[in-house]
Design a protein around this nucleic acid. Structure first.
Lengths: 150, 150
DNA sequence: CTATTTGCAAAGCATTTGCACATTT
DNA sequence: AAATGTGCAAATGCTTTGCAAATAG
């Protein structure tokens, strides 16, 4: 199922939330970006059209969107948290460019064999997994063939 | 290559660090725990044998150990950071019990096919991946067959 | 003697919370 | 009118940093 603006408004209402202009702006700020964005970046974007919004509202909006699984957290290594619009409602993972941050979704992760093996060998009942693959996107490879040290 | 206490001391010296009693205690606190531990937990453990150690020293020791890849970060969702002793120097992943936090290493993740496919389809040059599988360990399954809500 | 390391306190930064005011149903 | 949402400021909690004293090579 693809997520459209209408669908999102519906999901919010279904859960007793109002689609206020602030929330809409936060949603748009995350959705309009190919890359994952952190709260500070969301704030910058949102204030362009909504200069009076406070950080607390941004954090509360993010939390609401994350609780509804409309956005998800990625790239957990940095100090602040990074969020990304979910482009589909189904199980998926991200391919993240380590240079520019651009992300691509992929769905087939083929981990079922591995999970079966682990269950057999360890007795764990597998509930889920975190998988994020990172690399350099074609544009960044073209722009600087030798990656900058990070 | 398996990591022994001697080997670790050697690695530290190689990089110009001294193996002070504080650092040794931090290392031991992380290594002696099967589960991943956060800085506060490390502090509690270390102060049992070294009551005067300050938090700053613990943070600095963790940073040094992480820079040398002797410990690594796991479970990035919580507020504080969780660290785990590396039991081997090679590429590996963690199977984490979502209830008690116990972890098991595994090495074969079989993602090369997936990574090849993604390279073909997206043009990304893959650099690496984050993979963490979570579930419930046999002990926790036995202790309470129906998981507590989290 | 020099360089490194420690412990304390203070600072820094991201995030959360309390509360009065505003907005929506 | 009641419930929900907002913005500000203050509080919180984790992590880092400056610095003088301690320690190791």
């Amino acid at each position: 199922m693809r997520l459209t603006a209408n669908k999102i408004a519906g999901i919010l209402r279904q859960h007793g939330y109002r689609l206020t202009p602030q929330r809409h702006a936060v949603l748009k700020a995350i959705a309009s970006s190919q890359d994952c964005v952190n709260p500070a970046e969301i704030c910058t974007r949102v204030r362009q059209e909504y200069p009076t919004i406070g950080m607390a509202t941004i954090y509360r909006s993010i939390k609401m969107l994350a609780d509804l699984s409309l956005v998800c957290r990625v790239n957990p290594d940095s100090r602040s948290r990074n969020y990304l619009m979910r482009r589909s409602m189904s199980h998926h993972h991200h391919l993240v460019c380590s240079q520019c941050g651009r992300t691509i979704d992929f769905t087939h992760c083929d981990l079922s064999q591995l999970e079966k093996r682990l269950t057999r060998e360890t007795g764990f009942i597998i509930e889920g997994h975190i998988l994020e693959i990172y690399g350099r996107c074609p544009e960044c490879c073209a722009a600087s063939p030798v990656p900058n040290p990070r």
